[in-house]
């Protein structure tokens, strides 16, 4: 299912509402990261990636690995809109006893390639997938989104090394650079800057997206990644944690939280305003 950029600009607000409803239905969720990453996920699934429920087992498909697996609610919302999952079933099952719709991606569910949850796993696995595609001469592109706090895991940098070593230009890593992690600002917890220079020094092509919650800017970055040959690309997507509502924007406390009824109403109202503004742009 493909969306034009203008359509996607409003669609992401419906998806934010779906994400919110999943969290409320399940009584828990990593809401802040969901809201910062959902635009990149949307651009991947509705603009960039060659994958659909019909081609979910096609070896030539594009692959996505949700390295920041805790943002699963946003991922569920996008997978529902893309036809892999059913929103009613996700909402009914999320975090419930015996459900497959758990708090991190698991590949018993349609559309989910690999199980994640513990941080620092997605990039090495994606290197392996990209390597397999190269070995077999397949056209697949491979994407993984990591959180910025996740970059403190050493395995991420092992993946950066091997991605460069094997010149995996079919691999694109996205860093959801929202500057916050559960304990506070990333620069206070474990400083990431000078991030772009670090990743460049590992031999990757680096694209900095000034507004990582803008689907147009993200789409352009993914196009540049697609056209970059001989090396993998890392997109540093400068986002706002909790983007979409003043209730949660840039507040570390909203890393994992369920809104009260009043907060929920405020968020829904804020999303609607954003959607209207996007439609009128």
């Amino acid at each position: 299912m493909k969306y034009e950029i203008d359509e996607l600009k409003t669609k992401v607000w419906d998806l934010r509402k779906d994400t919110l409803d999943i969290i409320v239905a399940g009584g828990g969720g990593h809401i802040g990261g969901d809201m910062s990453v959902i635009d990149a996920l949307s651009v991947l699934y509705f603009r960039q990636m060659n994958v659909s429920p019909e081609t979910a087992n096609d070896p030539d498909r594009d692959y996505y690995v949700m390295s920041k697996g805790h943002s699963v609610e946003a991922y569920y919302a996008v997978l529902c809109a893309a036809g892999f999952l059913k929103l009613d079933e996700v909402k009914a099952g999320f975090s419930k006893f015996g459900s497959e719709y758990i708090g991190h991606p698991n590949n018993h569910l349609n559309g989910i390639e690999m199980n994640t949850g513990s941080l620092g796993h997605g990039l090495p696995v994606s290197v392996g997938i990209a390597l397999a595609a190269k070995m077999d001469g397949r056209p697949s592109r491979v994407y993984t989104i990591m959180g910025d706090g996740e970059l403190a895991e050493g395995s991420v940098w092992e993946g950066f090394m091997s991605g460069h070593m094997y010149k995996l230009d079919n691999l694109c890593a996205i860093i959801d650079r929202n500057h916050l992690q559960i304990s506070g600002n990333t620069e206070d917890v474990m400083a990431q800057e000078v991030l772009a220079d670090k990743v460049k020094a590992f031999g990757w092509h680096v694209i900095f997206v000034q507004n990582g919650n803008d689907v147009k800017q993200l789409d352009a970055a993914f196009e540049e990644a697609r056209n970059t040959k001989g090396q993998p690309t890392c997109i540093i997507s400068n986002t706002v944690k909790g983007y979409g509502s003043s209730v949660m924007e840039n507040k570390a406390a909203w890393h994992h939280k369920v809104p009260t009824t009043e907060e929920y109403d405020q968020m829904v109202s804020d999303f609607a305003k954003h959607k209207e503004a996007a439609a009128n742009e």
């Binding site: 990039l123 290197v127 392996g128 390597l131 070995m135 090394m161």
Partner: peptide, 28 residues
């Protein structure tokens, strides 16, 4: 050589890459 992958002294990468390869039908 086309069926051999060196990852350097990085066991986490070794196993993660192996899983990615296996996900695509390889037998690592």
């Amino acid at each position: 050589p086309a069926q051999a992958v060196e990852v350097g002294i990085a066991e986490q990468d070794l196993v993660g890459i192996s899983a990615g390869l296996a996900h695509c039908g390889k037998k690592p």
